[in-house]
Design a protein around this nucleic acid. Sequence first.
RNA 1: GGUCCCGUAGCUCAGCUGGAUAGAGCAACAGAUUUCUAAUCUGUGGGUCUCAGGUUCGAAUCCUGACGGGAUCACCA
Length: 617
Amino acid sequence: MDFTSPLVKDFQLAVNDRFNVMIPIDQIIINETRKEFEGDFTIVLFPFVKLFGKPIEEIGQILGQKLVDDQHFVQGFNVVKGFLNITLSDSFWLDVMDELTENPVIEKSKLKKGKVLVEFASPNTNKPLHLGHIRNILLGWSMSKIYEANGYDVIKTQVINDRGIAICKSMYAWKSWGNGATPESLQVKGDHFVGDFYVLFEKKFQEEYKLWQQSNDAQKLFSQNGQFKDQEEFFKGYKNQYFNEKSKIGNDARKMLLDWEANDESTRQLWMKMNQWVYDGFDTTYHDLGVSFDTTYYESDTYLLGKKAVKTGLDSGVFFKEPDGSVWIDLTDAGMDKKIMLRSDGTSVYITQDIGTAQQRYEDFQVSKMIYTVGDEQDYHFKVLFEVLKRLQEPFADGLYHLSYGMVELPTGKMKSREGTVVDADDIISEVIQEAALLTAERGEISHLSETEKAEIIRKIGLAALKFFIIKVAPKKKMIFDPKDSVDLQGQTGPYIQNAYVRIQSLLRKAAEQNINLNQRNDQNLITFNAYERSLLKQVMQFSDIVRNAAETYDPSIIANFSYQLAKDFHRFYHEVRILNAENADVKVSRLKISKVVGDVLKAAFDLLGIEMPDRM
RNA sequence: GGUCCCGUAGCUCAGCUGGAUAGAGCAACAGAUUUCUAAUCUGUGGGUCUCAGGUUCGAAUCCUGACGGGAUCACCA
């Protein structure tokens, strides 16, 4: 609902009436009046000074008076420097309140705007999910919800990297040292179970490598490479080569990869079994986070895609072939480099596969937009990918967006798996819920509820703390995640906002007990709205704009910050103003209506962020 | 080195499509509950918006250049 444009229109007419100039609407700057001044909205007059050749204060006086005389919605005004502060009439606010109460908080546009595919999560099967994945998942999920709210059909997807040397390492380790153990037999979550074997492989490999470093063979190699001062440095750099050329278990793992590619029956069986364990584990984490996918792509299916695109590109002259048979694209005229599309042995590289996958998705769903939620270390990759797709003249090429986000770091620095500083997703989820349980018990507010009801509320609170902590930061910024702060339930946090909602539900329950009807308009008795009420209404009526803006800028943090501001203002209102004991029945009803609509908006906003609201806490 | 991103209070972050005296939370200190859920509210202290130029009536915001931090520039993914 757009409430300010009638005011802007009136202002435009007032200017025309008094100065005979028709100012374009988009040149009229209107803001919410800052708290330290009196008024609801402020029009900036500076741009008009030169136009009218009068002192700015006088212009303000003339136009303000005109708006009051019109008797539309303006009740009063004041001019401070070049700012015309306008106070809207109580009847205006009464209308706004009833409009907001009677309509859904988000107007879902009736006409469909098209289909959008959102990719997020996209894990590897050799490691459990960590904090970085959580940020990714929250962003992608939230983006999906935001696009739905803006009238799009959304397809949520992930692409799982289920093949390659990494999973073969886990497979080899399990086969060699696993003794037939399963996640069930060891009571370990599947993704962790497989991840542990990956780690075990690395450990065994390191042992083997260390041992080899003492050998004559190794020492000879080291002394032949005179540019290295110390052994440690040399062997660090030699590690990959050792793995590929000399390592026994490296060789065995690579043999597995070849077997896999040759479709060897037993290797494929093992691969399927272990990946299934991982997927079961991932599903648990996704479930805990409250997210799901409409479809999943697997790299084992898609990694060969894109070769056809290479042929098409060659035919149309977008790509070119080197004498050795490799295929390239030259993007130097677009400020990028040359990029390989196909290796000289004819196999695909990462980008080939992405081209094929994009085409496949378009074929599958005919989407007009695709949003890739991937960390900012791949900014360049996506820049190249999108440019290539454009040059291939794909019909979807204009609807591609890389939702890039910054790395999640700890107060101590980057997470490093080698140093064991990676924050595991499952761990942090359970930690934050435990903390919520502790503090909820201390409070005692819900102690009368059943255990399952309590657990449910506690889960919502804990997850809200974690999720809000992450989603409130603008995506493109890297963020510092302090586990200590993330379990905070006070101040600028998810639970703070939930608490505002819970207070509102409590009010509404009591109002229902008193049989107060909130569905009727008050046409008889005009009430005076105080500053708290006006502020709440102003924010609530901006919600649709906020949601649109979040979609346009691909930024859920806008909604998070909006929610916080609204909750904060509600808490203040709640503290300063009597609601159920208001001075008369009309005021009571209007305050309840405002509270209800604030609650509805908070809940809708949190839903867009993937955060649930409890009714009590 | 080329390209891209970031730099705001002790810490974590808003504000960035230019508008009034730059805001929150945390941390510190002082207060508020016979009243609708105190996971709340009020107050105090805390700033060269990295720096220097430029555009403008007006710059944290736009432009240029430094400085600092990060990412990326594979026949890896």
